[in-house]
Design a protein around this nucleic acid. Structure first.
Length: 681
DNA sequence: TAGAAGCAGATTTTT
DNA sequence: TCTGCTTCTA
């Protein structure tokens, strides 16, 4: 027990010791949130509460495994049954494995990811944008609207179309026993809603429920939690309303703002002591977030020294910005700073390019967090598709992906004919080959039929070998289809081969760790898995602000502080959420923070003229510490271009506060313009 | 069937 | 400007 409280402050201790009833822990950035949750789990167990009655839900696998490790390390005894600590989706998966039959569906379903979902929608041959439909279907499911209700509720033409596609999509999933990410939450809810007895039973099983990053929950997750806690209301949620940055993805900030109104007698505990950043950095963060109205309100209190002031830099364009930042990073590394303590953040991924170039030129190794995910890489998806077809020869969706990969002469024409026959007989492509070989042979070339025959024979041979050994699957697969070889010949082939090898390694590890497992179990496991970020020790990190959530760096640069880029302005943009993003960005910094803006950026094929972000002023930083841009050297006679006034010639250069003021002759009219508003030509 | 050329569209992203 | 997708042509 001593171990648990050894490093907790007063409010953290209070949060840990509060056992019963609804609890809202408002944990500011860097206030020891993870420590508090994990200590609470350990405390419950140390007080005799069975580990099996504690359920902790997170959003990412990474957070789940980190918490599991930390919670267990606080306990003296080894537990035979560790508490269930997993993502919402993993919980849904486990639940459905037990109770899918309540929906008259079998529990050997396959989970599909977003990409799979889009491919299915696309195969319906529609004239609306696929991403739009995908997100609308998501919205329907998260609002628990079934396809028939969606159709009858649809008013506008396009919505009728979308609702009909939704129905078709859902039928397809049920027919092929597929489950998408939304289903992993929606179906368990549906079951709990229908079966009151089961709901009671489950709620009684999990007497203590903890939720991490509660500000990111959506309506469905909230409803699911309500069901799970219905028998006891022992629901402890931890989050920070000021760090809610996933509204665009359906997260409802009201869940956290109104938690204490929905759950009676909620105990609210605020963790506001920040153990991460210097006071100068915290002041900027506090000043910025204070401009939001929609918040519960709390101010971070520092525990560190004042620190160096937040540096604000300005350049004329992104190349000079990148050069300056790369140079100063280089200096830091040369003076002994560990590269892994340095990071550059941006609001949109498109801004990474100039920074990458700058770092490359300065020969600074960097790692881009986010970007293309391991499991989203084409070569990995191909291998997974092979495994899926082996697991289930009727998986048309995966079969289509690999039937001609590597190229074996089965083009679109042949595949379309098989699909057409499948449609006619209402069966899978494999069934067309197996049960309707005659009409198929009549319609496609002899050569193509021979190729298909060989292909399925190979697949079935591998499938059979699975009964002997799951471990040898990879060797059999490579021996038969030589997938790696087909990639090795491509321009960036070696990287792809390495990725495939890494994936094969993951498979073998899984089999070794779960000797009695099945291929299906492996496939479902990896669909729920995202990348465990391995931040390389010798590289600095660059990433979007969203990707930086939960991380911290000694030396941090945030670029693109311009109106239109950050805050991003456009439909679907919410200025308060943008501000929270700014807050998240700033609070990632521990020792030194640099905020950077430019006068113009190349974006979507055009050079855009930009004004400084309002956030700089809101942090109290746009005046005062502004540095002059050394790379901008306007002289008398320089030709410049202005967004409105067009091309002109500089007549005079003077300084106003920290900016250059130019007198420019625009076609006979002299005007005073600040240097950051014109571009040299 | 497969590579070449032409065209629209381009925040943030975990599961 | 760059990418990914569709259409065109050998």
């Amino acid at each position: 027990m001593e171990k648990i409280f050894a490093y907790l402050n007063e409010s953290q201790t209070e949060a840990v010791k509060q056992i019963d009833g609804p609890i809202l822990i408002l944990a500011g950035a860097g206030s020891g949130k993870t420590k508090t949750i994990t200590s609470r789990v350990a405390y419950l167990i140390a007080n005799g509460i069975p580990a099996s009655s504690i359920l902790t839900l997170t959003f990412t696998n990474k957070a789940a495994s980190e918490m599991r490790q930390r919670a267990l390390s606080l306990l003296d005894e080894q537990l035979t049954y560790p508490p269930l600590l997993c993502t919402f989706h993993k919980f849904g998966l486990l639940f459905l494995k037990f109770y899918m039959s309540k929906l008259d569906r079998s529990n050997n379903f396959v989970i599909i990811d977003t990409d799979d979902k889009k491919r299915i929608i696309k195969s319906f041959d529609i004239d609306l944008p696929v991403p739009l439909i995908a997100s609308e279907i998501s919205r329907f499911k998260n609002n628990l609207i079934n396809p028939d209700d969606a159709i009858s509720a649809a008013q506008m033409q396009n919505y009728k179309k979308i609702a009909n596609i939704y129905k078709k999509y859902q039928d397809y999933l049920i027919q092929n026993n597929l489950v998408d990410f939304d289903d992993l939450l929606a179906l368990p809810y549906e079951i709990l809603q229908k079966d009151e007895e089961l709901c009671k039973e489950i709620s009684n099983k999990y007497q203590y429920i903890l939720v991490d990053e509660y500000q990111d929950t959506n309506d469905l997750q909230f409803k699911l939690l309500e069901k799970l806690a219905s028998q006891h209301n022992n629901l402890c949620v931890v989050g920070d309303d000021d760090q809610s940055i996933y509204g665009w993805r359906g997260a409802n900030i009201k869940n956290i703002l109104e938690f204490d109104q929905v759950f009676e007698n909620t105990k609210v505990i605020k963790l506001t002591k920040n153990y991460r950043s210097t006071n100068a950095i915290l002041k900027a963060a506090n000043d910025l977030i204070e401009h939001n109205r929609n918040r519960l309100g709390k101010e971070l209190q520092g525990t560190k020294e004042e620190g160096k002031g937040v540096e604000v830099i300005h350049h004329d364009d992104e190349n000079n910005e990148a050069r300056y930042i790369a140079e100063s990073i280089k200096k830091m590394i040369d003076s002994g700073v560990d590269p892994k303590d340095i990071a550059v953040l941006y609001r949109i991924n498109a801004l990474s390019r100039s920074i990458e170039e700058g770092l490359n030129k300065a020969a600074i190794p960097y790692k881009m967090v986010g970007g293309l995910k391991f499991y989203e890489r084409a070569e990995i998806k191909d291998v997974i598709a092979y495994l899926r077809v082996i697991a289930n020869t009727h998986d048309d969706f995966s079969l289509k992906r690999i039937i001609n990969k590597p190229k074996r002469g089965l083009g679109k024409a042949t595949i379309d004919k098989i699909l057409y026959l499948g449609h006619q007989h209402n069966c899978s492509m494999y069934d067309v080959f197996n049960n309707h070989a005659q009409p198929l042979q009549e319609q496609i070339s002899k050569k193509a039929f021979g190729t298909i025959t060989q292909f399925f024979a190979d697949i079935l041979a591998i499938k059979e070998s699975l009964e002997e050994s799951t471990y040898d699957l990879i060797d059999n697969l490579e021996e038969t289809f030589a997938i790696k070889n087909s990639y090795a010949l491509l321009p960036d082939g070696m990287d792809r081969v390495l990725n495939i090898d890494e994936f094969y390694g993951l498979y073998r590890d899984f089999i070794i760790q779960n000797p009695n497992t099945t291929l299906e179990a492996f496939l479902n496991d990896i669909t729920l898995q995202s990348d465990q970020d391995q931040i390389d020790d010798r590289s600095i990190s660059i990433m979007s602000i969203h990707a930086s959530k939960g991380l911290e760096f000694d030396y941090l640069y945030v670029i693109g502080l311009e109106e239109g880029f950050f805050p991003l302005i456009g439909d679907g943009c919410d200025i308060e959420e943008e501000r929270r993003l700014g807050y998240v960005a700033i609070t990632r910094a521990k020792k030194e923070l640099t905020l950077s803006s430019t006068s113009s950026r190349y974006y979507k094929g055009k050079r855009a003229q930009l004004g400084k972000s309002r956030f700089l002023a809101e942090c109290g930083l746009s005046k005062g510490s502004l540095k002059l841009d050394r790379s901008t050297s306007f002289k008398k006679g320089t030709l410049v271009k202005h967004k409105i006034f067009g091309v002109g010639r500089v007549l005079e250069v003077s300084k106003v506060k920290r900016e250059y003021k130019l007198k420019i002759n625009f076609g006979g009219t002299a005007r005073d313009i600040l240097a950051s508003f014109v571009e040299k030509i």
